[in-house]
Every structure is written in structure tokens, then in C-alpha cells.
Design a protein around this nucleic acid. Structure first.
Lengths: 156, 156
DNA sequence: GAGGAATGGTTACAATTGAAACTATTCGCC
DNA sequence: GGCGAATAGTTTCAATTGTAACCATTCCTC
């Protein structure tokens, strides 16, 4: 058993454990991307999503990366400065930007993506194929549930 | 299936999903603790661990909460200012502090802990008992694995 | 027992992040 | 077609966090 059910032990508290796991993983990845490509994680997310969906606006990028629009704005600024992105504006609605990878940005993507997948693979090597599928399913359910709890008012 | 295996889709990338999940969960909890008790998450962690292990030093708290010593120092400062903690110094080694909850701190703990457990319960309601056990096991394995990858040099 | 390395903890400063206010453009509708 | 509300995105300022430098004390060892 994992511990007495009604007392709170930090080391068995699921939100704590998720936070610990995510911190280790994110820091490993962030270090590697920064070191190898001068990319922050927000920038990497923007690149990843634009590689797949070229021409998105900043807000659409935000929706697909779970970032807020300020974070996207800053990531985009950095990527524009590094000439890894090109920005135009929508003809019909000049508030909306249209973001695409420059060829330099494409090149970054084709080099980072395998690295990202390789890290994920190494991490998931700790699990059997069955467990990997289970993880995917469980995390999916928890995300849905956590969203609903956060939406349903006070979430206590 | 979850998507083509060799291409990178952010929405199926495990580190990304973990980050999304942890962010939602942490924000919900942080909001509730702040609103109800004026507690930050680091402060809450310090309280939780001292409730169980009274008399720890700051560094020992850091080890048990996965926080660095600066974060602990700041959380402790806040808790001392709120008179939720009392600090003495080790007789044999006057560098080491000995931290304990004050009675106000105890009282905060006895009120926060059920709230924390209730949130965890609501979250895990999304899963069957079998799935809950599986989650615990999978997260444990991934933490171990992520630690080893981070330790084994460049972690790419 | 004196000097240097190590440890516990805090402080100071820089970088990141978050929230709110702001600009520009478009939409709704009278 | 003009005016207020809404939307896209940026900027600003404050709060949080991370890193490094910094005391104080203790340990090691000569």
C-alpha cells in the first residue's frame, strides 16, 4: 500500500508527485534546448506547432500550446529577432498575424524534433508498451478532469 | 492509435502533456490555498513536511520537498512572519535551524490538509481504483527514470 | 590549535513570469 | 456610417524565481 489513506504525506500526494516529475523533465529539456539551439521551451512550442500548422495567428498558437497570449507574444518576438519566424498580417483582418517558420526556423525544427522524440523515448523506456498506453490514457483523463474542476468554480 | 510514431505532435508529446496537467493542477491548488489561507505552494509544502517531521532543519525540509534551499528560506521567512512557524537553532551545530509549526501553524495544517486530500480525491475520481494504483506506479517509475537521465550527463 | 575546505542559510541582483492597461482594428447594430 | 463593445496583440510594471555571492559556523588535517 501507498500509505495511510486519510493522512497527508507529501511524498504520496499526487499533485506533488506530478509537479516533481514535470519539473525534472522540463528542466532537462529546457537545458538541452537552450544549450544546443538557444531555444526556450515557449519558443520550442511555437516552432513545433507552426511546423505542423503554418500560418496560424498568435492566438491560435496560444490555443494549441496551452500558453497565454503574452507568452506567445514574447516567444514570437524572440524567434523573429533570431530570424526563425516570418510574420505577415491577415489580408481580411489586419489585427491577425500569420506566422510561419523561416527556412532557418524549419531547420531548427528538423534538428530539435528528433532530439525531443529521443528524450521522450528514453523516458518512456522505463515503461512497458502496455504501461505507455496506460500512461497516455491516464494523463488524458486527468487533464480533462483537472480542467473541469478548475472550471467548476472554486476547485477546492 | 495516438498519432504517427515518428513525427512530433505537440499534443501527444508526453513532456508537454505532463506540463499541461501539472500547470492546471498546481494553479487550481495555488489559487485555493492563497484565497483560503494566504499560503503559497512552497509554504504549504514546508508546513506539510513539518507537520509530519517536526524539528527538521531548512536543508532537511528542502530534501523532503524537492525545493532548493533558497525557496525554503523564503517560504520559512513568510511563515515566520505570519507566526506559523517557530525556529530555534541546533545546540550541537548552531548553523542548523530546527523548525516547528506554531500552534497557528498546526491549525493551518489541520485545515489545509483535508482540502488538499479532497482536491486529490476529486481529481482521482476520474480514474478507477486500478487506474489510480497504476498511475502511482507509473509516475514513480518516470520520476526515477527522469532523475537518472538528468544525472547521466547531457540528458538529450 | 590554525588555516583552508565544506556546510547551513541568507541576501542581492538578474531574468522570467503574470496581470493589467493600452493600441489598433474589426464587429454589431441602431 | 458612426459609436460602443469585442478581439488581436503588445507593453508596462510588479511579483516570483534562479544564480551567484556572501556570512557564520563547523569540520578536517597538519
Amino acid at each position: 500500500m501507498t500509505g495511510s489513506p486519510d493522512k497527508l504525506h507529501l511524498e504520496h500526494f499526487v499533485p506533488y508527485r506530478l509537479s516533481v516529475l514535470t519539473n525534472i523533465v522540463s528542466m532537462s529539456i529546457a537545458d538541452a534546448y537552450e544549450r544546443e539551439f538557444g531555444l526556450t521551451i515557449p519558443q520550442w512550442r511555437v516552432i513545433a506547432v507552426l511546423a505542423r500548422y503554418p500560418g496560424l495567428s498568435a492566438i491560435e498558437v496560444a490555443e494549441r500550446t496551452a500558453m497565454d497570449k503574452v507568452a506567445v507574444s514574447r516567444a514570437v518576438q524572440g524567434l523573429l529577432a533570431a530570424r526563425r519566424l516570418v510574420r505577415s498580417y491577415d489580408a481580411g483582418d489586419r489585427r491577425r498575424s500569420r506566422l510561419r517558420l523561416s527556412s532557418a526556423g524549419q531547420s531548427v525544427y528538423t534538428r530539435v524534433a528528433p532530439l525531443a522524440l529521443s528524450y521522450e523515448k528514453k523516458l518512456l523506456d522505463a515503461l512497458s508498451p502496455t504501461d505507455r498506453k496506460a500512461l497516455d490514457r491516464l494523463v488524458g483523463r486527468l487533464i480533462e478532469r483537472a480542467k473541469r474542476l478548475a472550471a467548476t468554480s472554486s476547485s477546492l
